[in-house]
Design a protein around this nucleic acid. Structure first.
Lengths: 286, 286
DNA sequence: ACAATAGTTCAGTGTTGCTTCACAACAAGC
DNA sequence: GCTTGTTGTGAAGCAACACTGAACTATTGT
């Protein structure tokens, strides 16, 4: 014995709400014949009489009432599922697992995130802030829908879209003699990101291109910590301007061109379809 | 866009519960092919990605989880409907609208009714106690599933099954002279049922066959009232033994054969299918 | 390289739900 | 009575659907 169709339950409810089946079938948008057959099928599936012949019309049995109540609940649940699907389809509902490096989350896209939360309160936004390498692993593993990281090498496992290039500038400790920027050989020593860091690689190669030594005396993955160490005179650093030049205790960069550009990119797994929740945030970032 | 099938929801839930689809499809009792197609159909109906290719297995998306929860509720409601149907099919659940004349309800079938309520607590038993004519109308109108009444004339609108014949005996007031039973001409006057009553017709024709006058000095539809009037000496009556001879204040019948037999029968509308709830009570009465 | 595993695609099949048309039962009119 | 309109049912045909079995692709383990 098969389970009742949602159409059949709709027929039953309509039959109880209207005095005549012709009327009810019209409301359901099917022919009177289909309506009649549908109710007959429902009766046989349930194994219960739902209507009783009385003259030329049908009178519902007590079972019909009880079953219609069950039917209403079932249809209500189906409608809730449909509502969910509709909201999820256009990204008003769902889960969005985002990853960002700290600079992106705080300085570049903080506002976007706030806007997004306000615009889509039913989206469960889970933000992971971590270094690029960690975020890349998480994206590849499928633990994140996307991440904004320092652009990695192209790879089959990632689709990469550049979102912005930010300047990395050199920040000497306060009180460093003027004119020293002319002679890279006298730069340093350095406080910078830990050795696994992608930004550290960029810095190291840029410095070596400039002819500077890269002798590291202190490490931290936190820009704020590096800035403070420079302020205390422990050494020089290279940071993005937004990290170094924010109050309190803003640093002052060596004048001239930036040492290098750091490219930030969104990364996603190319095999995973992009959900509308993700889409919407990425659109806003661009 | 059509609504999801219950089978498709079952597939989704199974897919989330088992590590491999082959296993899940086996649990659902369908081929891996049908399973895969079913989930694909569900995805397209909802317009949402439910699974994501990862190596050679599929990983559910966040939507899949949420939708499965909705699906569980829908299936639970369907199961409740099915439970209702199962119980209703074998008469453990539903409504039973019964009618009985007072004598039947109190003396003949009171025990049956009590037994029935105890055996089938989920059946909503609605008992109407009224005179035969009224019950017959109610049955014909479809307001009662069946009734036990004084057997009426055969009719197209009723199916009639005799359940018992009960003796109607003559009850004189206390202190009536012995030997008077030999002379029907000296019987009476009478207190008896109102003129519309079926039992009164039986009594009148039986008395006239015996050669007695049928002069009525008081009427009531309630046997207990008639009995009391006889006890107070207002006149004679004819009652079924169970009504007249119960304590307190039992009457004593004229000796000899009963005046007449009153036939009680169950009546039903022949066009209405007999439900199991009705069936069960009628079986018990027999 | 090879076989085993996981899931998909394809063609074919039976069932279902629908439509249209014809029909039976009934009520109300003349 | 006869006719007419209404209400619901049955039959034939059709399109959609869910299923199966077999061939197929892609991934993983050895």
């Amino acid at each position: 014995m098969r389970t009742p169709t949602d159409a059949q339950l709709r027929y039953l409810i309509a039959a109880l709400e209207h005095s005549t089946w012709a009327e009810a079938s019209a409301v359901c948008g099917v022919s009177a014949s289909a309506f009649s057959q549908g109710l007959a099928a429902l009766e046989s599936r349930l194994g219960l009489p739902l209507f009783e012949a009385r003259g030329r019309s049908r009178v519902p049995t007590d079972h019909a009432q009880a079953i219609a109540r069950h039917g209403e609940r079932i249809l209500a649940e189906l409608a809730r599922l449909d509502d969910y699907a509709t909201e999820a389809r256009d990204g008003r509902r769902g889960v969005l697992r985002a990853g960002m490096i700290d600079t992106a989350a705080i300085h570049h896209f903080g506002e976007s995130l706030v806007r997004y939360r306000r615009a889509r309160p039913d989206v469960e936004l889970r933000l992971t802030v971590a270094p690029s390498a960690e975020l890349i692993d998480a994206v590849v593993a499928g633990d994140l829908d996307f991440a904004i990281v320092v652009a990695p090498e192209p790879s089959d496992e990632l689709s990469i879209d550049v979102v912005l290039d930010e300047p990395l500038r050199i920040y000497p400790p306060p009180g460093t003699a003027d004119g020293i920027d002319r002679d890279p050989a006298r730069w340093g020593p350095w406080v910078t990101f830990p050795s696994g860091s992608r930004t550290r690689q960029i810095i190291r190669s840029a410095l070596s291109r400039s002819g500077a030594h890269f002798d590291v005396v202190a490490e931290s993955s936190q820009p704020a910590v590096l800035r403070e160490m420079v302020r205390l005179g422990m050494g020089w650093t290279v940071l993005s301007a937004v990290d170094a030049e924010t109050e309190p205790h803003a640093l002052v960069a060596l004048p001239g061109e930036p040492l290098a550009l750091r490219t930030l990119a969104t990364i996603r797994r190319p095999t995973a379809p992009m959900g509308k929740t993700t889409q919407a945030l990425l659109d806003d970032l661009g």
